[in-house]
């Protein structure tokens, strides 16, 4: 159906973002394809060292992931930050990625955790995209009109993983004005395989390689964390909007990075 109607059609998963846009008459699809009837599309599986997130896995489903290990802990914590309970009961992981709000927790997580997305078109079949290449600009992705995310695969994390997440909002449940997720391995006294990304700051979430390099193979200290926060704050090019102008967002980026790093060290 999607290949038939292309631009006129939209896929409806949780609907927590698409429906209000339609109510406001900002989006006006002629065809709306409800995915909620797809069988067995809500249960995650694990294979080849990856968590495989199906299209109808909802935010609230991450609260109690059956898989043990750090990845589940991280995703469970992040899911608690998404909107409020009624939103989490409906909204989906894959839907959030397709919606591509730069402040969305799952967009940041998929980039930082190196998720790979399987997208499928009726005519061209399945292709894989790295999450980092998926987000093009604000609310825009490389998804073609006739494509759908059929799965997100997130690599599992080893037991020695440390992580920290922080998001700065005016109100509980709001989209973050700035957020940070940092993940690394604790190797003796050093941090290795550091991944640090910010969301809600620029048009798309992204990792900050300079910050990762600065942390890699270093001992975690408050002093270092502050320096990294300063570095990230100067490395980003924040957007301006009603809720925060670029200067203020830069301050909030510094706060989010520094808090996420502090939390990783708890």
């Amino acid at each position: 159906m999607l290949s038939q109607h292309g631009d006129d059609a939209r896929l409806l998963a949780g609907g927590q973002s698409l429906v209000p846009t339609m109510t406001a008459r900002l989006a006006r699809p002629t065809v709306l394809i409800d995915l909620n009837r797809i069988e067995n599309a809500a249960l995650p599986t694990i294979s080849a060292g990856r968590l495989r997130v199906p299209p109808l896995m909802r935010h609230a489903d991450f609260e109690r992931l059956s898989a043990n290990g750090p990845l589940s802990t991280i995703l469970a914590e992040l899911s608690g930050h998404i909107g409020h309970l009624p939103i989490r009961m409906r909204g989906t992981f894959c839907g959030a990625l397709a919606h591509a709000d730069p402040a969305a927790e799952w967009c940041l997580a998929s980039v930082v955790l190196g998720a790979e997305l399987l997208v499928r078109s009726m005519t061209r079949g399945v292709r894989n995209i790295e999450a980092a290449d998926f987000f093009e600009s604000m609310m825009d992705t490389t998804l073609a009109d006739d494509e759908m995310i059929i799965e997100a695969q997130i690599p599992l994390l080893p037991a020695a993983t440390r992580y920290g997440f922080s998001e700065i909002c005016r109100r509980s449940g709001d989209y973050a004005l700035a957020s940070t997720l940092v993940v690394y391995q604790r190797d003796e006294d050093e941090m290795t395989k550091v991944r640090l990304g910010v969301g809600g700051v620029e048009a798309t979430p992204r990792r900050i390689p300079e910050a990762e390099a600065m942390l890699e193979r270093r001992e975690p200290t408050r002093q270092l964390f502050r320096e990294v926060a300063d570095l990230v704050a100067s490395a980003v090019d924040p957007v301006s909007d009603l809720a925060a102008d670029a200067d203020y967002r830069r301050e909030l980026t510094r706060a989010a990075v520094s808090r996420a790093l502090d939390r990783s060290f708890r």
């Binding site: 209000p20 406001a24 005016r170 109100r171 509980s172 449940g173 709001d174 009603l242």
Partner: peptide, 27 residues
């Protein structure tokens, strides 16, 4: 939290509840 501001052209800045942040029980 709340204000009903306009742009330099007189267009309302707060057009929905996302832009008009009524504080919740958490705040």
């Amino acid at each position: 939290y709340t204000a009903l501001d306009v742009s330099g052209l007189g267009d309302p800045r707060a057009i929905n509840y996302a832009d008009y942040p009524v504080p919740t029980a958490c705040e």
